[in-house]
Design a protein around this nucleic acid. Structure first.
Lengths: 129, 129, 129, 129
DNA sequence: GTGGTCTAGACCACA
DNA sequence: GTGGTCTAGACCACG
């Protein structure tokens, strides 16, 4: 829930991803009004221009819509949201597999490593719970 | 097989990844002499400075070693190579899972999507073969 | 026929254009009383202030006149209406041609494209009719 | 050739249109390097950020491509340029006809006015020539 | 020298 | 109070 940014990538990109995540997870409901640009800026200790840039990305993806002088709202079209989730998910898998193959792993090996790590991660979670 | 770089990330990083991949896959054998900086620069139509930086990354990781006035060679220590592969592989999996969860997917869903895409990718490959 | 506004331009401008169109087309007859500001506001789900501004534009153009405590009426002077139509029409043509030339089209090409699109548009209309 | 901007629309939009026009007309050749962001800024007496924003629009349309730390170049794909010209041209015609109809003109009337104004414009040009 | 990113701060039209 | 636009100026990685 904290707004932590790493220095390796542009803040506005990380911010866009964070808010996107919030929408896809339903933390921001469909049709809901987002915090204002200035509120976001305060929350994240960031310049309003940076927020605007981040939200511009979301608007391009069709995840949010701007109502002039009223605010920015999560889109009402559920299909947009689902589409984004699917697209981004598939892209992630494709990139992941491509990167693993660049390391010399075969399809089967990728599957094995993935399974191992996934289970390891889940057991970590239950420890923390 | 061409040296294609995207504009979104530094060229020297992409180059380092590409050569790393070559080493991990065995295209450059253990102990083998790498092409000279100039040769790399010509192959990739890139500034020699850029090649220097890329190779510096590899040297830092212990994948290659410089022999003064002779050239740069792939390390002879197999453990180095295996370690790199493992580290990088685990990091990739962890990042992948983290990103997927940011999209709102559960552990099981990630597994399903991964399996689907992996199989789709493999059938594509066999088509092209 | 609904009151739809796009977010890229001020609502009051779009509203002014819409009502102007109604007058020029004769949907609001000469001398006819216009709906009250409040009625317009309800019809368009818009702030009354916005309606005020829109009607102010029309009054400036001489298309409507305010009678204190009675309402706003379409002008009785037909010349006003004709003049507005002519001015606006010519301005539109001039802008259109200027914009097309900015795209690199010659006068003849503009004519051809215009004719093609116009006919295409008309055949679409007759389909819907 | 002068960089004149009107106050009614954002500078970065007008700038984007102006440069787009230059590309479509061939004043900037395919594959040619554009002036740097800073040069544009000086030419137009405008802040570099504003230029960046303008060029970002062109990049989105696929008319130009950025090579990191080298400059921005007109795309090499002629199809992109032709496509843009066609799309923009058709959009202009459609908007024009729609606006004229909103003034109460019939299809035939639009054609007549268009022809008259077009010829008037051309005779003006020959006078100046 | 190039583009990319970010900040601080300002003004504006609009609702 | 909202988003939109713009400026001035800074720093950075890269080539």
């Amino acid at each position: 829930m904290a707004w932590q940014f790493t220095g390796d990538r542009p803040i506005y990109i990380q911010m866009a991803e964070h808010i996107t995540s919030g929408i896809l997870k339903g933390e921001y409901q469909m049709g809901e009004k987002l915090p204002s640009v200035r509120e976001f800026a305060l929350m994240a200790s960031v310049n309003p221009n940076t927020v605007q840039r981040a939200l511009f990305e979301l608007e391009n993806m069709g995840l949010i819509e701007t109502q002039r002088n009223t605010g920015k709202f999560v889109t009402l079209e559920e299909s947009r949201i689902e589409m984004s989730r699917n697209e981004m998910g598939k892209a992630l898998v494709a990139d992941f597999i491509k990167s693993m193959k660049a390391l010399g792993y075969s399809g089967e090996q990728i599957k094995d490593i993935f399974e191992n790590e996934r289970k390891a991660g889940e057991s970590n979670e239950s420890e923390n719970a």
